[in-house]
Amino acid sequence: MAQAVPAEQKWWSGGRSPFNVEYGKLMMWYFLMSDAFTFGAFLISYGTIRFSSNSWPDPNEVFQSFPGLGSGYPLAFVSLMTFILIISSVTMVLAVQAGHAMDKKGVVKNLIWTIIGGLAFLSCQAWEWTHLFHEGAWWGRNPFVNMDGSQASTNFTNFFFTITGFHGFHVFSGVIINIIMLIMVLNNVFERRGHYLMIEKAGLYWHFVDLVWVFVFTCFYLI
């Protein structure tokens, strides 16, 4: 590993964390692992149903609208959403790094950018859901036909709204967590504590949200 650890260091003799991380960060990792199984179960059930169907709606037919431009732009809007989330992940890393350097101003600036990115993503999703709703799509309703022209079941919309909804809820709670972090930074809580490790935990959660989107984006929009 990149980190320098003395060769004779006895990690398991007690008195210190054998993983060299604080308790909260380790627990955040385990929580995210369990969350990964939840999302994995959702996506795999989606895949199972899709594999058991004779045909499936074409994502390029369903997701082809762009606000202000109308329809006929497959993949365009979702690319925008993907890049928004990637960039907000980048600003989050920068906030964590600023925290390591005890640079309060840097943390505040990058946290604000991350929150803006999160809100932008949520707005995009709200627009997309509204648009699809007005086209007649919702849980239990599917106006789109299959790729081969046959009548589609409601499986497609049910999975789409459930999984993107669950992801959107994660983004929403991530934004709330980041706002709480921002307030704590502005109140000098971490300055008094002597370290910004809490930002790191919030960062882990935020990156996880980005990570899940990588999978949702691929499974629903690309393939």
């Binding site: 169907s53 022209g149 046959s150 589609a152």
Partner: peptide, 10 residues
């Protein structure tokens, strides 16, 4: 499942 839908594709 092979019957074509009545509505035109979106």
């Amino acid at each position: 499942s092979q019957k074509k839908a009545e509505k035109p594709a979106h």
